[in-house]
């Protein structure tokens, strides 16, 4: 039994059916499932849904429920089908919810204790990167506006990679450091 955050629950049989639809290789199907879920979450986030993960799970649930009816006649990439269902679910969610409560401002002053802990954690987290990656991580995010654009362009030329490849590489490193920082801060500050 697979419990998702949406209202319904998938049993093993329907979940297997879904995986088999995504790919006949079970391992690859599992990867595709996770990837589709990530993209659905981003899709809902971009449509200003607070509980994006819940609607992503609801989408998967609904697709799975419909699967026995459509699987025989459907050909091609399953992803567009998810898109159609996700759009419908978003419309329904707009009817259910009216206002979104925004969080308090994030630009509040920060305690020195936290600043020190952040610096120590970032020292450690950056220390876990290889030297070239550490330099890339620090260099990529320096500068502002035009200076930043020019700097990134020259950095991409220096590394002999396309600007977008550089961007994605920096994004991956940043995500890695972000997770490391928050894990470290929760250890230090509780």
């Amino acid at each position: 039994m697979r419990v998702l955050k949406g209202r319904q629950v998938l049993n093993q049989q329907t979940f297997d059916l879904l995986l088999n639809w995504l790919d006949h290789d079970r391992e690859r199907a599992g990867e595709k499932y996770e990837e589709i879920r990530r993209r659905l979450i981003k899709f809902f986030e971009c449509r200003r849904v607070v509980e994006a993960d819940e609607l992503a799970d609801e989408t998967i649930n609904r697709v799975t429920k419909k699967l026995p009816e459509i699987i025989g006649g459907y050909s091609g990439n399953p992803v567009p089908y998810f898109y159609g269902v996700a759009s419908n679910i978003h419309l329904e969610s707009l009817k259910r919810k009216s206002n979104v409560t925004l969080p308090p401002t994030l630009l509040a002053p920060v305690r020195d204790e936290r600043v020190e802990a952040e610096a120590e954690c970032l020292d450690d987290c950056l220390g876990q990167l290889t030297s070239p990656n550490r330099e890339l991580m620090l260099e990529y995010y320096q500068g502002a506006k035009q200076e930043k654009i020019a700097h990134r362009k020259s950095l991409a030329q220096r590394l002999d990679i396309a600007p977008n490849a550089l961007r994605i590489r920096a994004y991956r490193l940043r995500s890695q450091i972000q997770e490391c920082l928050f894990a470290c801060l929760s250890r230090k500050l509780g």
Partner: peptide, 14 residues
């Protein structure tokens, strides 16, 4: 494209 292209998800996140 967001749902179909994995690289685009990374690009969007960047």
């Amino acid at each position: 494209r967001l749902l179909a292209d994995g690289d685009f998800l990374k690009y969007l996140s960047a």
